[in-house]
């Protein structure tokens, strides 16, 4: 194929919202130019300011979650002295002290771990549920699709926070493992259970878009099984949109966790959590606004990091969106 032909094909594919694979360089032996979707996307990302801000912030918070002591400036978050209660930020204690007189910066820093664990674990469960249910619904169609899509509709009509709120409130009284733990696992599972529908719809529509293409028919003619066709030939098409969705959703779920914890059904004291810190700080919002301010800022930056990366990824992977 000539460059022009390949460019036309790419254009057609983009317009149709699908990828046939014909326009990718692996098929194109005559050209030595490498411009697959991914190398194209990377070239775009390298120049994206949003992406770099998001990536650096994400890296920062991941390091903070793994080695919080690096950021605590030598302070022990559990070493408290009531004499320092609500003390304002100073040169030695950048975030001041909380109500109990604990160094606030170390407390906020130690909160990163729970937030990231819950965000990432919840998104993994969302992915598993979304990909499996979406692929089955899209691939088999008919009654299977009808039933699975209606179930997704039902969950979709319930607001995420509301569903998770009810489950986490009732959870500790049950004997279902993890859900009754009041820990990060319960919060993550509750969020995933009421948050998998968008991933399912995304995968389902991608599967429907490509399942009737010729190369799938070719694979079937060669005797490939349903599972092989799905995993090897169809699902790879959904990687790009799912990646964008996943990145943004980690941020959204981290915000949701903080909200649930703030509302009293998420993580419980004495866990380190930004939601708990905001909740404890709101009573002294007039006398010590820094108690609400600092965990809020760090929480916002974490959410922003993932949303910025996801936004940049979407622009990079979807040329139609570019200016």
């Amino acid at each position: 194929m000539t460059d022009q032909q390949q460019a036309d094909l790419r254009h057609d594919e983009v317009q149709a919202g699908t990828t046939t694979g014909l326009a990718s360089p692996s098929v194109d032996v005559t050209s030595d130019r490498q411009n697959s979707l991914w190398s194209d996307a990377w070239a775009y990302l390298k120049r994206s300011v949003f992406f770099w801000i998001g990536a650096v912030l994400t890296l920062l918070f991941i390091v903070m979650a793994v080695f919080p002591q690096l950021f605590a400036r030598g302070q022990d978050p559990r070493a408290c002295d009531l004499a320092n209660s609500k003390a304002r930020p100073s040169a030695d204690h950048w975030f001041g002290y909380d109500v109990q007189g604990c160094d606030y910066m170390s407390n906020v820093v130690y909160g990163a771990r729970n937030s990231l664990i819950i965000g990432i674990f919840a998104v993994l469960v969302v992915l598993v549920l979304g990909v499996v249910v979406g692929a089955i619904a899209g691939y088999f169609g008919g009654v299977t699709d009808g039933v699975l899509s209606r179930i997704a509709d039902i969950f979709y009509a319930l607001p995420l926070i509301l569903g998770a709120l009810v489950l986490l409130r009732v959870g500790p009284q049950t004997d279902i493992p993890i859900i009754n733990s009041r820990g990060p696992g319960a919060v993550a599972l509750a969020l995933a259970l009421f948050g998998w529908m968008t991933a399912m719809r995304l995968v389902r529509s991608q599967v429907i878009a490509v399942k009737s293409s010729d190369y799938v028919a070719a694979a079937r003619a060669m005797g490939a099984s349903n599972s092989r066709i799905l995993v090897r030939h169809i699902l790879p098409n959904a990687v790009a949109p799912v990646l964008v969705y996943t990145t943004i959703t980690i941020g959204v779920l981290i915000a949701a966790e903080a909200t649930l914890t703030y509302l009293g059904v998420g993580l419980q004291r004495p866990a380190f959590s930004w939601g708990l810190q905001i909740e404890a700080g709101q009573d002294s919002i007039r006398s010590a606004p820094h108690l609400v301010l600092f965990p809020s800022i760090v929480l916002t930056l974490t959410v922003m990091a993932f949303i910025m990366m996801g936004d940049a990824l979407r622009d990079a992977l979807d040329p139609r969106q570019r200016a």
């Binding site: 905001i278 609400v292 809020s296 959410v303």
Partner: peptide
């Protein structure tokens, strides 16, 4: 981008 990233919870306190 900034507004979308601020959780409602945080935004409410900032506004207050």
């Amino acid at each position: 981008t900034v507004i979308v990233s601020i959780p409602i919870l945080v935004l409410a306190f900032i506004a207050q």
